[in-house]
Design a protein around this nucleic acid. Structure first.
Lengths: 243, 243
DNA sequence: CGAACGCTTGATTCACATCAAAGTTAGTGG
DNA sequence: CCACTAACTTTGATGTGAATCAAGCGTTCG
């Protein structure tokens, strides 16, 4: 995935200076924009641009002015909050189809950076917001997406508040597999492009506990650890641990 | 707050069989319905009914068919998820103005019951949903509410994943005070109508740890424990613990 | 090749959970 | 109004799961 520079000076590496090329969009079948008619799409595509990010680069940071909204089309993005003393909580891993900046708030309430090289469809907040205001069907899809995110967040609250380390890892693996499955990424091995530290910061654990728990699951042949991921050996066992 | 029975057989204790009496509504200034014109309100009020719940009674349970949506107008409602083995995570305390059933999903993903005697404006999901579909401004308010809930949920993820017991209690007290302040309930004492067990299940702690932490904050004169609540003695100290 | 980084493993500590009991408040009925 | 009970809360003693501290072990990369 090569970066095309920043021809229009917006601060992002734009791949399509004249507007989104929706034909080749990898998420058009399930993106929020799939409710738009051909006519509506013609206007909509002019306000969005595909932007590419190398792995580990930042899309935006907590407390920045929220002048862009993003729809992830490829790759994985980590969303996190930092406490003043440096403790970090990852509040989600965004996958293709996920929308960042739903809140249309003045400033971002979390930071986002690319875990893998990734591509997002970027909109200026202002243009996007006024487009949404005149397109109720799009607003409805955004609302559905927000309520889905809310239910994921509440599941994560149960995990963080009431589950053991082993249950957290099991729920993480099963949950990520299911999310990838929903967007058509099915595979025998589950790829885990994020670091152990990322997993720890998502699950409210330390890197050592994450590592030990993977080792334990591996030793009891529940999973097989492979480069950059795992393979499920006893999927039903992990599913029952995840409830 | 007396219960008027169930004149129309809908299974709830309806206070106003002919439709919502919005004039006396305690939350009309900040409710989601405040965007409706006088004309729109005339139709809208006919699909809602005030329903009353005694303390500790259930509004609905997780996995029930979600045939109602509720807008809390008085009192406090606890929202929680249960694991198969009985562990409980409270995912939120709903206050006047809060909306339950935003997701418009087939089944409820959590249980809700009244902490104090409370009143909600109840709508059939079907009628509410079709009203929303033809009223984009209402949808927009619901979306705003959903994204606000999402940001609260993510704050709670940070608390559950990365904060100490003392920080959790401080953040809980300050957060609840701020939410009450926003809806016009300002008072020198913060009333805590929920049990210690409820607080524990919200903060991912045990009842003993909650009790000990309250005692500790009280001994160091950060708070004063009063019947059914607390008073802030060193508000800035608690605020800084809550970050 | 060596440095840097990420991951795993082991030894030890500690914050919070668990277990246990006593104290307090609320509710009930005589 | 008080005796009695049940529920809730606090306090204390002990246990433990995960954190912390501390090496080692690959891999990657300059």
């Amino acid at each position: 995935m090569s970066l095309a520079g920043d021809p229009d000076g917006c601060g992002f590496c734009v791949l399509d200076p004249t507007g989104c090329v929706c034909e080749g969009c990898k998420i058009k079948s399930f993106s929020v924009c799939n409710v738009l008619s051909a006519e509506e799409m013609k206007n909509f595509r002019t306000i969005g641009h595909s932007v590419a990010f190398n792995a580990k680069t930042s899309l935006f940071a907590q407390d920045d002015i929220a002048d862009s909204v993003f729809n992830v089309t490829e790759g994985m993005v980590r969303l996190y909050k930092l406490l003043p003393d440096g403790r970090r909580q990852i509040v989600g891993f965004a996958l293709p189809g996920d929308f960042l900046g739903l809140a249309l708030e003045e400033r971002y309430s979390f930071s986002a950076d690319a875990v893998t090289a990734s591509v997002s469809c970027r909109f200026s907040r202002k243009a996007f917001s006024s487009y949404v205001d005149q397109t109720p069907l799009l607003l409805k899809r955004l609302h559905e997406h927000a309520t889905y995110e809310l239910s994921l967040a509440r599941e994560q609250m149960v995990l963080l508040g009431r589950r053991s380390a082993e249950e957290r890892i099991a729920a993480f693996l099963v949950g990520l597999r299911n999310r990838l499955y929903r967007i058509g990424h099915q595979s025998v091995t589950l790829s885990l492009p994020m670091s152990r530290q990322d997993i720890a910061d998502f699950l409210g654990l330390t890197i050592e506990t994450v590592s030990r728990t993977f080792t334990k699951l591996s030793k009891e042949k529940s999973i097989l650890i492979v480069p950059d991921g795992i393979r499920f050996l006893k999927a039903e066992k992990l599913e029952s641990m995840a409830s």
